[in-house]
Design a protein around this nucleic acid. Structure first.
Lengths: 253, 253
DNA sequence: TTAATAGTGTCTGTAAGACAATATTGC
DNA sequence: GCAATATTGTCTTACAGACACTATTAA
């Protein structure tokens, strides 16, 4: 036992570093902005009515505490997405980390925010075990900011819990800025293995919040995706109301 | 009114009784990729030789633990930048949050990484109080990845502590992707209030790692910055070796 | 037939890049 | 004069956007 008496300087330093309780640690949550398109091709987001304090009865984006040591932060986000929507293996990308003082009244809580893009038919939204409500809301804009609406409710951005309005706005901005040079839009297709140019165009229109010219969209689509091999043309068409449309398939990298 | 009182009391009790130990919390660090240009206009990065375990004697980017409750994560990054380089009020932007299991051998440590762009003459690098070395290294590329060099040392990316090589690579990629449509480059100018087009061009060349055509660069510069009012032309020239060059001034937003 | 949607072709303006030519300094 | 750097101008090509026109289906 006496041997421990003599501690080398190196070991002492190590032990000091090892004692992480020397610093006050924050709680960390993984929170997710889940986007989808509804049947009218409008941009929707999943919100949850909080069952407990703080911000009880306010609406928020889904999320949960990181269980440090048991999971990575990406895994925490994926777990939370699975819990709320029963899906996995979807597009899930880190957005930003929010860490202002006082953003959570309980204690210091860092939020590592993620964006998920999911076709609506894959969503299987669960009301949480603690009687939470979970609903999709359409995103509209007004002088005072974003409005979230569905058949029964209207939610103003100022009604959201925490700084979640800020998180959602950043997610929308990022999505919009990335749409022209990233493959994000394909993640919102009903079926990436069989889609038409018009379907993809409608997704771009929704995200950009403006109409696009179909002939020009086609030109860009053929150059950026088909000519580069990211998308292949199928020997197959689909007919709805007018001339049959050619089907394409997105090639996963 | 009675109802409101009741809710307030309920929430107050909740906040008081909130058990912060319910979830295992991670430690969080703010780590900074500090870029500057050396006198040969090469891209340099500040690295620190770690004085303690883990990764003792390995090189790392500067950073430190978030003191939860005392500072926001942005403030922690700014404090760390100030500690290492004695500068404040510089370009400091959040990059990404790294939270893989096992990225730190001690315990779960999330790293919120930031990028700083600083003109070299503003840097006042301190060797830390715990006998750490802090040096600028030039960034070169080789088959096995990035090499960091100065007059005395060569460091391979595999020698870096933690996942810091990954962080640095992401910072370089992001910087390169943003240079054409963000104002990042102006933060590396010796003096944003008096600079020539050639000076700015050299910064762009360094970040893009290729030479640019001066007449074409000028054309873009005049359209993107001068015509938009981001930069104003000064009634002043500077002469070094050839024809005097007109000076410009960057307008802070 | 008409309405609806898909697809082709043409024209214009803008911007990037290659590069020739000219201008102004120090030596 | 020459070397070095700054500045102007010209040409080509690529691409975005507007838009006219054709094609193919259902009803």
């Amino acid at each position: 036992m006496r041997k421990n008496n003599r501690i080398s300087k190196e070991e002492k330093e190590f032990l000091e570093q090892y004692d992480v309780t020397k610093f006050e640690r924050p709680s960390v949550t993984a929170d997710i902005v889940i986007f989808t398109l509804d049947d009218s091709d409008e941009l929707n987001i999943l919100l949850i009515k909080r069952g407990g304090f703080p911000y009880k009865d306010h609406w928020a984006i889904p999320g949960g505490f990181l269980e440090a040591g048991k999971e990575s932060i990406d895994e925490a986000a994926a777990r939370e997405l699975k819990t709320e929507t029963n899906i996995d293996n979807v597009y899930l990308k880190q957005l930003y980390t929010f860490g202002d003082l006082g953003r959570d009244p309980r204690t210091t809580v860092l939020s590592v925010a993620y964006t998920a893009l999911v076709p609506k038919h894959k969503l299987n939204i669960r009301a949480g075990d603690d009687a939470k409500e979970a609903k999709l809301f359409s995103i509209k804009y007004d002088v005072n900011g974003i409005i979230f609406t569905n058949e029964n409710k209207v939610i103003f951005e100022s009604d959201l819990a925490f700084d979640h309005a800020e998180i959602i706005k950043m997610a929308i901005t990022r999505l919009r800025n990335r749409i022209d040079y990233e493959d994000d839009a394909f993640n919102l297709l009903k079926d990436r293995n069989e889609f038409t140019i018009s379907e993809l165009k409608r997704i771009h229109e929704t995200i950009k919040n403006r109409t696009l010219d179909l002939p020009n969209f086609r030109k860009t689509f053929l150059r950026e995706y088909v000519a580069t091999g990211k998308v292949v043309e199928l020997n197959k068409t689909i007919t709805s109301k007018g001339k049959p449309a050619r089907l394409y398939k997105y090639i996963e990298r």
